[in-house]
C-alpha cells in the first residue's frame, strides 16, 4: 500500500526551480533514504510534503487523501512527523517538556508521562531529562529533536539529516533505533552519511538539481553511474 506519493511536485523561488516536477511513491513500512548533493532540493522537497512550504504546482497525497492544500499542522495531525535539519527545539524548556509537547497533542494525563519516559529512554537522554534543552550539548539536542519526532508516534517519520554532529557511538545507537522503528512507522531519511544509509535503508532515492535522478535498492544505487557523476562531479559526498 502506498502511504505517500507526490505528482509533478515543483517549487520555484523567484523563478529558480528548487524542486521540479517530482513524482515520488513511498509504500507503507519502508525505510527510504533520500540522498543527493548539497543544494539538490532535498530539504525543500520534504518541506513541501510536510507543509512548511507551499508548492508552485503538483500534488501531495498521504494515506489516500490529497493533502496539498492542508496547512502544516493538519498534515502533522494526520500522522506525519518532521525533525528539523537545523535543530529546532524549545531552548527555554526542559528536555522532558520538549518531548511532552510532542506527545500531549494526542494524549492526556498519565499516557503522556508514559510515552515521554519511554521516548527519553529510547533516544538515550535518561539522566538529562530535567536539564534546560538550550543547555544540552549539540549531540544531545539532535537526539532530543529525534525524540520529539518519535513521541508523536507518527505513521510517516521524516528525518532531515539526523546524524549530523552525532558521535560514532551515538550513530550506532541511532541505526539501532531506526531498525526498531521499522515495524511501527514508515521512514523517509535525508542523510549524507552513506554508512548509515546503507545500513538502514530498504530503498534509496537520489535527488539532483531538483529532479529525481534515480531510485533503487542500496546495491543498485551504489552501482549507478549517473549517481556517481552527480556526486563526484561536484566533489561533494
Amino acid at each position: 500500500m502506498t502511504l505517500l506519493s507526490t505528482k509533478g511536485l515543483s517549487k520555484s523561488f523567484d523563478g529558480l526551480e528548487a524542486v521540479s516536477s517530482v513524482d515520488f511513491e513511498l509504500p507503507a513500512g519502508q525505510i527510504r533514504a533520500l540522498i543527493g548533493p548539497n543544494g539538490a532540493g532535498k530539504t525543500t522537497f520534504v518541506s513541501l510534503i510536510c507543509g512548511r512550504l507551499a508548492p508552485t504546482s503538483g500534488t501531495v497525497t498521504f494515506d489516500g487523501y490529497d493533502i496539498t492544500v492542508l496547512p502544516a499542522h493538519e498534515r502533522i495531525q494526520r500522522g506525519i512527523a518532521y525533525t528539523f535539519q537545523i535543530t529546532s527545539i524549545f531552548p527555554g524548556l526542559s528536555a522532558r517538556e520538549n518531548i511532552a509537547l510532542a506527545a500531549r497533542r494526542f494524549l492526556k494525563g498519565a499516557q503522556v508521562t508514559e510515552v515521554v519516559e519511554a521516548t527519553i529512554d529510547k533516544v538515550g537522554l535518561l539522566g538529562r531529562a530535567d536539564q534546560t534543552a538550550g543547555d544540552l550539548a549539540y549531540g544531545h539536542k539532535r537526539l532530543l529533536e529525534i525524540g520529539m519526532g518519535l513521541a508523536q508516534n507518527p505513521r510517516l517519520l521524516i528525518l532531515d539529516e539526523p546524524t549530523q554532529g552525532l558521535s560514532d557511538g551515538e550513530i550506532e545507537a541511532f541505526k539501532e533505533l531506526i531498525r526498531d522503528l521499522a515495524d511501527q512507522a514508515t521512514i523517509l531519511l535525508i542523510e549524507h552519511n552513506m554508512k548509515v544509509v546503507m545500513a538502514t535503508a530498504n530503498k534509496i532515492s537520489v535527488l539532483d538539481g531538483g529532479r529525481m535522478l534515480a531510485e533503487g535498492t542500496p546495491e543498485e544505487i551504489q552501482n549507478n553511474f549517473a549517481v556517481q557523476t552527480a556526486y563526484l562531479g561536484r566533489d561533494d559526498a
Binding site: 510536510c50 512548511r52 502544516a72 499542522h73 493538519e74 502533522i76 495531525q77 518532521y82 528539523f84 529546532s88 527545539i89 524549545f90 531552548p91 527555554g92 524548556l93 517538556e97 511532552a100 509537547l101 510532542a102 500531549r104 497533542r105 494526542f106 520529539m148 508523536q152
Partner: peptide, 17 residues
C-alpha cells in the same frame, strides 16, 4: 504549556501538529 512553547519556538509548535 502550548502557549509557552509558542513563545519559545512558534514554527516548532506548528510542526508538532
Amino acid at each position: 504549556k502550548t502557549l509557552i512553547a509558542i513563545r519559545e519556538n512558534e514554527e516548532r509548535v506548528t510542526m508538532l501538529g
